[in-house]
């Protein structure tokens, strides 16, 4: 234990955590590793939401097949989020439409918000973690 211990009085504190996914699922590790963080956050009983924007919208696209690039297809993990009570999933409308995607292209149910609406939601958060 160290001198900072008293500052970690987190008992009963519930904050709004938002995880913002902005990267394509493959090509870099950001999408996979931020997902690990989302899953851990669920154990802390916080108010968690997850956003998919920019190329991050591809993370939850149906029908991913990664065999040819020798990387694990981790998209089924997003479907497990519900079991961790992580149910607030948002997609930015502009990012989705610019990539020719629609709400039924995703492996999980999401709420589609405009950039402006999403900005308002971000403004309400206590902690924003990006990947």
């Amino acid at each position: 234990m160290n001198e900072l211990e008293p500052d970690y009085d987190t008992e009963g504190v519930v904050k709004k955590f938002m995880f913002v996914n902005r990267k394509a699922p493959y090509g870099t590790i950001y999408a996979l590793e931020i997902l690990e963080t989302v899953l851990i956050s669920a154990a802390f009983d916080q108010d968690v939401s997850v956003v998919f924007m920019d190329d991050g919208v591809f993370q939850i696209k149906k029908g991913q097949d990664t065999k040819a690039i020798n990387v694990k297809n981790f998209s089924p993990t997003y479907r497990a989020l519900e079991g961790y009570d992580v149910e607030k999933l948002f997609v930015e409308r502009e990012s989705m439409e610019a990539r020719g995607l629609a709400v039924d292209d995703f492996v999980v149910p999401v709420e589609v918000l405009s950039a402006e609406e999403l900005g308002g939601l971000m403004d309400q958060q206590d902690v924003i973690i990006t990947g």
Binding site: D7, D9, T10, T37, I40, A43, V127, I129, T130
Partner: peptide
């Protein structure tokens, strides 16, 4: 240590500041 330390920091701190792309 584990990822829980990150979440705990987010809960305990007034601000969590993220550096990276």
């Amino acid at each position: 240590s584990g990822l829980g330390q990150l979440i705990e920091a987010g809960i305990a701190a007034d601000r969590l500041v993220v550096f990276g792309d």
